[in-house]
Design a protein around this nucleic acid. Structure first.
Lengths: 244, 244
DNA sequence: GTATGGTATCTTGCATACTAGACAGAAAGA
DNA sequence: TCTTTCTGTCTAGTATGCAAGATACCATAC
């Protein structure tokens, strides 16, 4: 009946990655403890682990929140992914037929989710492609790293992107697998780099500036006229997100 | 007086990386709690964080141990480092004079530690070079990743290498910085790859086979004569290491 | 009507108490 | 003397209780 720490961790993580919990959402220890039917200790351990993975943060005596990556962090995460994933493809010597088949099967899943319009599942699956790719290449350490980085960029997408250009990503994935099948690993790496760039540039990294940054701008603009105060944004409160 | 969780985490980690605590050493919760003068809760959180970083493992109801990476894990860690660090160097567009100067200063520190014969400090500094390099390139996410991977390979070195060929590594580092100074990033990446390969191949990855493997060999050799049982190895007990 | 100050409540932070399981050593039987 | 079983002790796992602090709300004064 009582779930393990790992299960709680996974449950929270998938809820976040599927978009059921938005960045900035507060995750109260007692709340979660009640939901999972365990004591706060277990919940705490799960949250600590998610913190080391860069998915949640704790603010002392205020609570746990799903991270809202800054523009800077977003750029770094994308850059990190580009470095690692292209490096991985470059280091490849061969790709067995099994791997190609497995990746193609995954792409079919993506297409199905896109056709069904299942947004949460879409985001999950599109991220999973990269994790799946790393898994198939057999290095568990790198897989772990890519898994966490993908989680981060998925969070970034949620914050800065109105909606994911799912079919474009899906198309990119297909091209990458095509290149792999041809044995053109350098080409695959190039496509991967372009793909991650495309996802990043598809975001509106200026759409959601730091509240502090916004304030500073307003203060710098001389007289603080009432109309300059951005009432309608209301981004200073982490809990303002509706969680419907 | 009472140290923070982060301080405890760092303290344990540096002790491990400096070789003061050997792989396989047991880390009892109550023991550590007494040492740091805090309750088990804090120690536990520190250990959980170190676990997610791949430095310690917990065996259910038996205790926490400094990880003893298997040969497989060792290979994966080195491969991961090669992929990431060469990818990082490849993605480089320029290297400012400040960075070069900072790296050269670090290399001087390495030389000093080698000259002084300070083995623990040597291992630390040689690993730090890579972390320092990542830091200077300005991506904190990648730096974190490289930091953890370096910790892993340092552990591997402790297990499988009688002693680090410190001066060779130091020489490699110099060559990498030279290449960076010339703006030859592809060359630097090539040197880095060779360097990591050299460190890996310098290890005796067959020196410390799995206890299970050893047992299997002995069982396969027909009659289990008493002399065939490797008493003097005693690798089944994680606490047999002297901790002088 | 607005601003300010105080209080009440809710949050994590930390320590302690308790539980269950694993291991080791002793004792009993073969 | 060797093997097996049982029991005591030590371990992490978990829950709970209390304390410190931050936020939010309400009352009061201007």
């Amino acid at each position: 009946m009582a779930p393990q720490v790992g299960e709680i961790e996974a449950s929270i993580l998938t809820a976040i990655l599927a978009g059921r919990i938005r960045p900035g959402t507060r995750l109260g220890e007692s709340q979660l403890a009640a939901i999972y039917g365990v004591s706060r200790t277990k919940v705490r351990e799960a949250l600590v682990r998610l913190e080391t993975r860069g998915v949640v943060t704790v603010s002392a005596r205020r609570g746990w929140y799903v991270v809202e990556p800054s523009v800077e962090e977003a750029r770094e995460a994308f850059h990190a992914r580009k470095v690692i994933e292209t490096g991985l493809l470059h280091s490849l010597a061969d790709a067995s037929g099994d791997i190609i088949a497995s990746l193609r099967a995954h792409i079919v899943l993506e297409e199905a989710a896109i056709a069904a319009g299942d947004v949460g599942n879409q985001a999950c699956l599109l991220g999973d492609f990269h994790i799946h790719l790393a898994e198939l290449l057999g290095n568990r350490v790198l897989t772990e790293v890519i898994r966490d980085l993908t989680a981060r960029t998925t969070l970034v997408s949620m914050l800065y992107q109105p909606r994911e250009k799912a079919s474009e990503s899906n198309h990119d994935h297909q091209e990458i697998v095509d290149a792999l099948e041809r044995g053109d690993f350098a080409g695959a790496a190039r496509l991967m780099s372009a793909h991650i760039d495309a996802v990043e540039s598809g975001l509106d990294l200026s759409a959601r500036p730091d509240p502090l940054e916004l304030l500073k701008e307003n203060l710098a603009s001389g007289v603080l006229s009432p109309s300059a105060v951005p009432h309608r944004h209301g981004i200073s409160s982490p809990t303002q997100q509706d969680q419907s």
